[in-house]
Simulated assay, not measured.
Amino acid sequence: MKKSLIALVLTLPLSLGLAACGSDSEGGDGGDTTTLTVYAAASLTSTFEQIGKEFEAEHDGVKVEFDFGGSSDLVTQITEGAPADVFASADTANMDKLVDGDLADGDAQDFATNTLEIATPPDNPAGVASFQDLAKKGLQLVVCAPEVPCGAATRTMADNLGVTLTPVSEEQSVTDVLAKVTSGEADAGVVYVTDVKAAGDTVTGVTFPESGDVVNTYPIVPVADSKESDLASEFVDFVLGDTGQGILQDAGFGQP
């Protein structure tokens, strides 16, 4: 009896260990998860996060991970070997860099448009009422750097209107510009209509009639040599489909 009891005690931990191993592989987090990595312009942050959740809901076992930033930075990272499956740019110029580098899997497709709007702190203490007011002496203005889509659009707008801007800083993404405004570090920033809408009461938006003259078009494409090429194509189709387009339009984006 004593020997039998000892044998039982010795084998019990092993049995429990094997049972635990079986439990991990069959339940809980045991199922395989496929990760799709999407590199997207910073101005797409809230909308693509929502699109990602909807996409996951329709694709069991799929996790969509995003890397948001300035389109110029993102395309540089992909060119240098970053493991992206999908690239969504805030302009065609940076998408062209990806295509010219033979890093696009198929043709890029336009999925949205956006226009500029001025963001100020709540109640607009500097009294900015037009794009021309951004040239006021002493105004603490923040814009995107010229290589970033929102910066290129801002420069084009300024050239079209004959306005000389002297920003106190040039940021690498539109979200960085917005952050400067919401933190009170700037009197005004040039962002997109969608950014002002998403910011809600944290900023005051100042529209100007000339904004429709400079429109940014957003293209998207699967990245070449993606390990999840089929899934990447499905995500692109999802963005172009009814669900994706509905989310984008609700956020203030225009149709391509």
Rank of each mutant, 00 (worst) to 15 (best):
G184P: 00
V203D: 04
G61Y: 09
E171C: 07
D133L: 04
E234T: 09
V223E: 05
D159P: 03
T207C: 00
I220M: 14
G22F: 01
D123W: 00
T92Q: 13
D91G: 15
T154L: 11
T76F: 05
A57P: 12
T194N: 11
G61A: 12
V75A: 11
D110W: 03
F87C: 05
L12T: 12
V75I: 15
V62Y: 07
C150D: 05
F66Y: 15
G212P: 03
D230C: 01
T156F: 08
L139I: 06
G61V: 11
K180Q: 15
E210M: 05
L36S: 02
K3W: 11
T194M: 06
F208C: 06
E234M: 09
A57M: 08
V223S: 02
T243I: 15
S183C: 01
A126Q: 04
T120M: 05
F111E: 01
F87E: 04
D237V: 03
G252V: 08
S25Y: 08
D159R: 09
P219D: 09
V214P: 11
T33I: 15
A188N: 07
L231M: 09
A104W: 04
S46D: 15
I220Q: 04
L231S: 09
D24F: 14
G151Y: 04
Q245M: 07
F55D: 10
G200I: 02
T166L: 09
L141I: 09
C21A: 12
L74E: 12
G244P: 05
F48E: 14
L248P: 07
A126L: 01
I51C: 07
V215W: 12
A20T: 10
E185S: 14
L8P: 03
T156M: 14
D242F: 09
D100C: 01
A158N: 06
A199C: 03
V142Q: 04
A7N: 05
L36N: 03
A126V: 02
L231H: 08
